[in-house]
Design a protein around this nucleic acid. Structure first.
Lengths: 154, 154
DNA sequence: GAAGGGATACTCGGATACGCTATGTCCGAGTCGGACAGG
DNA sequence: CCTGTCCGACTCGGACATAGCGTATCCGAGTATCCCTTC
């Protein structure tokens, strides 16, 4: 899993806390977490395309949450950044080679089913937590975030 | 997730069905699924190091299950092939940059907790299924496997 | 016929290419704010 | 003084390099089995 996921989640939580401050520029977000500015921008653009964030261009522009934090799940962020494909992809190797000769395979691949079930459990957990839950889990960070943001230059 | 996981699981199921035939050589296993022989060997060596398979050298050698199929979970195979590291690794970016100034962070990172919980759910599902379960899920393949294996040359 | 030595086939471990994706960087299009000229 | 226009700074967006890892291959070393020679 790419590190952009951690970046995206932290940015979403921060944007949730700063939603009254208007759009936050990529320059400030990169300085906020000491991340490479251009690459972080690329990842947030993916979140924008997925409808998780909304961006406004121009000198006073920046990124902000496209929806209320209660309506953005961790799964939304992960899917937007990692793609919708499953981690395990069944290539149906059972149907190739000598071992497959004379077989019908009317049943679906049991291995594929098992892996899919595990991945569904993973997705269910991620879909059950929202950005709002993460925000509520660190109330003291909300105040510090707003305080430090107000002191940022430019 | 690497495709070696699918290979390893199918090989374990096949070795479970052929456990009365003695060790199965890597040449037969590669031909069985039409896989690159050398690379498949490399993956099965990883399973051997992890104690899932046992290998015997020599002209009549090959690979076989190191334990009864009921005692080999899908999680064992995945861990042996993908490594024990978690997919999501928290880099604690919240403690870097401008946003961290003046913070104690006595609580652990909520994002890390959420991701870990999801990954535990995934691991629990995989640890709940064994090679024996996969074997039982496709009984008609067992007979075909033994039949086709008996007809294999060399 | 039994014992010893060589040949064979197989596994193991490491060293070496190749390709794809994640990572990182760049430039162009668009937008806002202010300066400036004209009325 | 007010207004309209132009310029510059800043932003997003997408296109263009680079690096690291998964994939794939090859080679030498070790070992057990088999065969063949020899006593």
């Amino acid at each position: 899993m790419g590190e952009g996921v951690e970046w995206g989640l932290h940015c979403c939580v921060t944007l949730g806390w700063l939603k009254d401050e208007g759009p936050v520029s990529i320059r400030k977000l990169a300085a906020w977490f000491d991340l490479p500015q251009e690459y972080l921008k690329k990842r947030l653009q993916a979140l924008t395309r997925a409808g998780v964030l909304s961006s406004v261009p121009g000198v006073k522009g920046g990124f902000s949450l496209a929806r209320p934090p209660e309506q953005i799940t961790i799964m939304d962020v992960v899917t937007a950044l990692e793609g919708p494909a499953e981690a395990f992809r069944c290539e149906e190797i059972r149907q190739r080679g000598v071992g497959a000769e004379g077989g019908r395979f009317r049943r679906p691949c049991g291995i594929s089913i098992a892996m899919r079930r595990a991945e569904l459990a993973w997705r269910r957990e991620l879909a059950g937590q929202t950005i709002a839950d993460l925000m509520a889990g660190a109330p003291e960070s909300a105040a510090r975030t707003r305080r430090n943001y107000a002191r940022m230059p430019g």
